[in-house]
């Protein structure tokens, strides 16, 4: 399975569109202080004001600048996405690969844990715990990561199991290679496209979960999150404010998810040779 994930993404128009959207949102989040006139928590003096030069998206029910909250909300979303993706994929690879390579009781214990965790939807546990402790950003990231690694571990394990049956692994074993060496120089490189696809998947789920918690109103009241803005704005659909309050926030969230979705799809499609058009079909498509 020699796949170049970068080429797969670069040759897919949808994935490129996804990358572009994501890059725009990252840029907006990074430049948030430059692009806004008000700090997201500051009271501007007017509630429910219409969009104007100072408040590009007007103000909300607490008189806060919506544009500013939108940009700072992007930071929360991106931090959660990145944090969860890194922690979750690390756990997945550590558990999945070590279980496959070491085997025996070690493997069965881990796989029991993975299977049991896999059967409960993470969001149920998330809601339950969040309802009691209203987690802040760091705890949210840790919680989502702890709940989402088992799926990846399962996939990594089965991949490593099939990889370690290859001839060149046996060959290196006859030369006395240990587990660590085999993993580092023979298995990890083969796993990298899979790991990339799963990282995107984890990030997408994290964005959704964080927004979902905000939407249900069980996240930390101090964090600015798109989900929470939507939760807040949904109470005022009878006023005109939804046009510049609810709609842009929801669209920003949806675009982020769609962007991650496109990138993920293209990475997954690249790994499934059945879905990649053969040379003949590809030339037809280009006509």
């Amino acid at each position: 399975m020699h796949i170049d994930p970068f080429r797969a993404v670069a040759s897919d128009r949808l994935a490129l569109a996804g990358l572009f959207i994501l890059a725009t949102i990252v840029l907006m989040a990074v430049l948030a202080p430059v692009l806004t006139f008000f700090s997201p928590d500051c009271y501007t003096g007017h509630i429910f004001s219409r969009p104007s030069l100072m408040n590009p998206l007007g103000t909300d029910s607490l008189g806060q600048d919506i544009w500013s909250r939108l940009l700072y909300g992007a930071r929360t979303t991106l931090i959660v996405a990145a944090g969860v993706a890194v922690i979750s994929i690390t756990l997945s690879v550590l558990v999945g690969a070590s279980a496959a390579l070491i085997g025996g009781i070690y493997e069965s214990i881990w796989m029991r844990i993975v299977d049991a965790m896999y059967s409960v939807p993470p969001i149920i546990v998330m809601i339950l715990v969040a309802a009691y402790i209203r987690p802040n950003l760091l705890i949210t990231i840790l919680m989502i990561s702890l709940l989402s690694w088992p799926e990846g571990a399962r996939i990594i394990r089965s991949q490593v199991l099939s990889l370690k049956e290859r001839e060149h692994i046996y060959a290196s074993q006859t030369f006395g290679a240990g587990c660590m060496h085999i993993f580092k120089s023979h298995i990890a490189p083969e796993l990298s496209p899979l790991i990339m696809a799963m990282t995107v998947q984890d990030a997408r789920r994290a964005v959704f979960m964080e927004a979902g918690m905000g939407f249900l109103g069980v996240s930390d009241p101090m964090t600015i999150s798109w989900g929470k803005i939507i939760h807040q704005a949904l109470d005022f659909t009878y006023l005109d404010v939804w046009k510049w309050w609810l709609l842009p926030t929801g669209l920003a969230l949806s675009l982020t998810l769609v962007a991650l979705c496109f990138i993920g799809f293209s990475l997954e499609a690249a790994m499934d040779p059945r879905l990649v058009p053969g040379p003949l079909e590809r030339s037809q498509e280009q006509c």
Binding site: L14, G250, L253, S254, L257, V258, A259, L260, C261, F262
Partner: peptide, 25 residues
């Protein structure tokens, strides 16, 4: 393929809100 992939990336509650705003409100 493109349009359904686009739609399936949407968070469902926002799809609901969108329909509510367009067809309801």
């Amino acid at each position: 393929t493109a349009s359904l992939m686009f739609l399936s990336g949407f968070p469902m509650f926002f799809m609901g809100i969108l329909l509510l705003l367009i067809f309801g409100v």
